[in-house]
Design a binder for these strands. Structure first.
Length: 426
RNA sequence: GGCGGGUUGCCCGAGCGGCCAAUGGGAGGGGACUGUAAAUCCCCCGGCUCUGCCUUCGAAGGUUCAAAUCCUUCACCCGCCA
C-alpha cells in the first residue's frame, strides 16, 4: 500500500474529485496523520452503479493513503429517503426490500475496500444499528433539540422541494438522521471526516453542526463533484438504464463496452476519476489519446482497469477478447472453438436444439433479447441492421442452417454496430 | 371539510365524441459518414398469427352505432378557502 498521504488533497484536486471542503488548510493539516473518515451509501436499488462508484473510489483512495475508512450502509436512511437532488417525494420501499438491498450492497461495497490489511482495515457499519434502538422521545430530546427548523428549511434539498410539490415530514427529517450518523461515528470511532457527492453537502454540514453542538467537537467535510458528460447526458446511464456493478444487471461485456464507448472528450476526465494509475501514467495516456484518438488507447485502458476492478482481471481479459474477436476486424469464420466459446460467454444467448426446426430470423433475434420484441426485430431487419456472423441478413423469414454455425456450434447475431448475441446449437 | 384544476405512450407535453396507436419535443434504435467516438443527414420508434387484428390515454362502471375525449364512483396530486 503506497503511503503518500501528504499529497492526497493535491491528487484529488488534480483528478477533479473535489467540489467543496471545509477549511482546506485544517483538512490538509489533519490528513498528515491517519484519520478516520466515512462515506454513506443508501440502499436505493438492488445494486450500486457506476455513479456511486465515483465517491466510493475516493474512499478507497483515502484508505490507500493510510486512513481509516468506514463504509456505511444506510439501512436506516434508506428506509426514510434522501430528498437531496430529488424533485419528487419518493415512494417508500418496504423494509423487506430495503433489507435485501442492504445485504447485496454490503457485499458489493466490500469489493472496493480492504478489510484484511493490518494497518488500516476498513470497517463496515450500518446506521440501522444505532438508529433503530432509539426511541422517538430520545430522538426528539437528545437530537432534535440541536436542530433549528429555520436552518433545516434553508438547506437546498428542502427549499427546492418547498418551491415545488412539497416535502413530507419523513424526508424532511433525513438530514437529522444523517447527522446522527456522523455524530455516532465521531463518538465511537473518532471519525472526523465525511465524504460524499456534492449533493450531500447540506447533509454533511448538518452533521458537523450537530457534532459541534452535542460534543463541542469539530470535524471535516469533503464533497465530490457530480460527474458530467460532454454531451450533457447523464453519466452512467444507457438506453437500458443505469450501468450496474451487479453482473446479472449489467453484463461484464456491456460494462466494458460502456467505458470503451466513452466520448473522446470525456475519456481523460473519466480516467482521472476512476483509475488508480499514477499521474505520470495518466498524462502519458492523455498524450497518446490526443495524438491518435481513433486508436482509443485511453478508452481501452479505462475499460480494462474498471472491468478488472469491478468484475475480475480474468473477466476483463475475456470480454475484451470477445469484443476483438467479434467486432468485424478479421474473419469471424477463422476463430477456433475455444476463442469463440470464451468470447461468447459474456453475451446474451439463446439455444436451439439440433434436429428441431430453427426459428426464423426475426424470431431468433427476439429470442436472444438483443431486441425487445418481434416488431422491433422486424424493424431492425427491414432497416438493414441485423447481422449474422457479420453478414447483413435482410429476409425476415430467413432460417439458419447447419453451415451458419461456426465450429458447428455457435452463430453470432448482431443488431446495429455493437449489440451482440449468441445462438448456440445444442 | 368546501371549491377549483389535474392524472395521456420511456420523459415532457398536445388532443377534448368518429379523420387517434393518438400532433410535437426529448430520450432511444437502424442506416450513411467514421474509429464500436462526436457532429451531421435520412429513416424508425405499443404489441401480434401484420394490407388486418389486439391492448393502451390514473382505476372501475355507464351513455353512445362510436369515448383519451361525455356521465358516475373511487384513488392520487396541485392550488385556493375553512
Amino acid at each position: 500500500m503506497k503511503n503518500d498521504m501528504t499529497d492526497l488533497i493535491d491528487d484529488l484536486k488534480w483528478r477533479g474529485l473535489i467540489s467543496q471542503t471545509t477549511d482546506e488548510k485544517e483538512l490538509r493539516e489533519a490528513l498528515k496523520k491517519p484519520i478516520t473518515l466515512y462515506l454513506g451509501t443508501d440502499p436505493t436499488a438492488p445494486s450500486i452503479h457506476v455513479g456511486n462508484l465515483v465517491v466510493l473510489l475516493v474512499l478507497r483512495r483515502f484508505q490507500l493513503a493510510g486512513h481509516h475508512t468506514l463504509p456505511l450502509i444506510g439501512g436506516a436512511t434508506g428506509l426514510v429517503g434522501d430528498p437531496s437532488g430529488k424533485n419528487d417525494e419518493r415512494t417508500l420501499n418496504t423494509t423487506e426490500v430495503v433489507e435485501q438491498w442492504v445485504n447485496r450492497m454490503t457485499k458489493q461495497l466490500s469489493k472496493f475496500m480492504d478489510f484484511e490489511t493490518k494497518q488500516n482495515p476498513a470497517k463496515m457499519v450500518n446506521n440501522l444499528d444505532w438508529t433503530a434502538p432509539m426511541s422517538a422521545i430520545e430522538f426528539l430530546r437528545d437530537i432534535g433539540k440541536h436542530f433549528s427548523v429555520n436552518q433545516m428549511l434553508n438547506k437546498d434539498s428542502v427549499s427546492t422541494r418547498l418551491e415545488k410539490d412539497g416535502i413530507s415530514y419523513t424526508e424532511f427529517s433525513y438530514q437529522v438522521l444523517q447527522s446522527m450518523d456522523y455524530l455516532e461515528l465521531y463518538r465511537s470511532y473518532n471519525c472526523t471526516l465525511q465524504i460524499g457527492g456534492s449533493d450531500q453537502w447540506g447533509n454533511i454540514t448538518a452533521g458537523l453542526d450537530l457534532i459541534r453542538r452535542a460534543e463541542g467537537g469539530s470535524a471535516h467535510a469533503l464533497t465530490v463533484p457530480l460527474l458530467t458528460k460532454a454531451d450533457g447526458s447523464k453519466f452512467g446511464k444507457t438506453a437500458g438504464g443505469a450501468v450496474w456493478i451487479d453482473p446479472e444487471m449489467t453484463s461484464p461485456y456491456a460494462f466494458f463496452q460502456y467505458w470503451l464507448n466513452s466520448d473522446d472528450k470525456d475519456v481523460i476526465k473519466f480516467i482521472k476519476v476512476f483509475s488508480f494509475k499514477s499521474r505520470a501514467e495518466i498524462e502519458a495516456l492523455e498524450k497518446t489519446h490526443n495524438e491518435n484518438p481513433g486508436a482509443r488507447e485511453a478508452h481501452r485502458e479505462l475499460a480494462r482497469e474498471l472491468t478488472a476492478l469491478v468484475h475480475s482481471p480474468e473477466i476483463a481479459v475475456r470480454v475484451e477478447a470477445a469484443a476483438r474477436a467479434l467486432f468485424g476486424q478479421g474473419d469471424i469464420n477463422e476463430l477456433d472453438e475455444a476463442t469463440l466459446a470464451s468470447a461468447l460467454a459474456e453475451l446474451p444467448r439463446t439455444q436451439v436444439k439440433s434436429g428441431e426446426e430453427i426459428p426464423t430470423w426475426v424470431d431468433l433475434l427476439a429470442a436472444t433479447g438483443v431486441v425487445d420484441s418481434k416488431s422491433a426485430a422486424r424493424r431492425i431487419v427491414k432497416e438493414g441492421g441485423a447481422y449474422l456472423n457479420n453478414e447483413k441478413i435482410e429476409g425476415e423469414d430467413f432460417r439458419l442452417e447447419k453451415l451458419h454455425f461456426l465450429c458447428g456450434k455457435y452463430a453470432v447475431l448482431r443488431k446495429g454496430k455493437r449489440d451482440l448475441a449468441a445462438v448456440e446449437l445444442i
